[in-house]
Design a protein around this nucleic acid. Structure first.
Lengths: 163, 163
DNA sequence: CCATATAAGTCAATATGGCTGACGTATTGC
DNA sequence: GCAATACGTCAGCCATATTGACTTATATGG
């Protein structure tokens, strides 16, 4: 708790420090998404499609409601994008095994291929950043990002790790 | 360079590690922007307005071209948002001191107040994350984000620091 | 068994924020 | 003087988000 040297100079540094942290996040997200956007545009898709494909690939069998909980968009917004992906054969729907109201989502082989292609540049970018920064920095990166995330999701995502 | 234990298990872990890094960025950005969006919506503004206000506040006297270079959008896109902010009295334009073609941008007092209000929750969020993660983690956070940013901007942003 | 709740889909209207392309204006600088 | 530059603008298009209302199918508890 104890603030260290709460003088005005200290406060100025703190403000600068925080602005830097904000801007780095902005620039990093901007460039992180830019590469994939180019590929997506060629395929006639947008970022929203990528997000859906990504998380369906990440959690095969995920339900629509869970997906909405991750993306934080409305079901109407999801519906348009998801519908396209289903119609174009990238995602398959199956009724839930116990609850048949659910539509469990999975990538088709075409969807898997697309996911790989789309995320490859991003994984490469992250891998490069990780390699350049080193393992200790990666740990810090994850700790701070986790701290930026809402408590509920933070618990789920960081659950095993930070005690 | 030397890869450590390039076995298939190692590759699996690496893939997981990279996915985690990608998702943390997604979740963090999602939650980082969510709070300010609420305030913006009440004022009839969007995220684009916030970004403009933020960077004009950050670099008082910035030119339109420089702003475009930061935001990576077209002048037409910027024009709509910037025009609103100027018309509503949040941003003032002055011709450049040496090059009178330029329109140097500055926050008006109202703009400064709005910037403060908008960014306050974000700074608070970053401050909380920083405090929870610790100074070493913050250093790592910055190093990795810097590595995610395109080379040209990385040089500008990280110039003084990482040698 | 029935009532209610839940999972998901759908129709319609609206707003925001990107984009391309074309064109205009003032100013700079060779 | 003329090309390049900094900026603005008009017009149209598209992707992605929103709210609100309504439907269908299934689950579940009293």
């Amino acid at each position: 708790m104890a603030d260290v040297l709460p003088g005005s100079h200290q406060l100025f540094l703190r403000e600068e420090e925080l602005r830097q942290g904000i801007e780095l996040l902005f620039y990093a997200y901007r460039d992180f998404t830019a590469e994939a956007d180019v590929i997506l545009a060629k395929l006639g898709f947008g970022r929203a499609h990528h997000r859906v494909i990504y998380f369906v690939g990440r959690y095969p069998g995920i339900g629509v409601g869970e997906l909405l909980g991750i993306l934080h968009i409305t079901k109407q917004s999801l519906s348009r994008v998801l519908g396209e992906l289903v119609r174009k054969g990238y995602i398959a729907q199956r009724p839930g095994p116990t609850d048949r109201r659910q539509r469990r989502l999975e990538l088709t082989p075409a969807g898997t291929a697309l996911e790989r292609q789309l995320s490859e540049t991003q994984r490469q970018r992250v891998a490069n950043a990780y390699r350049a920064a080193g393992a200790a920095a990666v740990e810090g990166y994850k700790r701070v990002l986790l701290g930026l995330i809402n408590e509920t999701d933070r618990a789920k995502l960081g659950g095993p790790k930070p005690r």
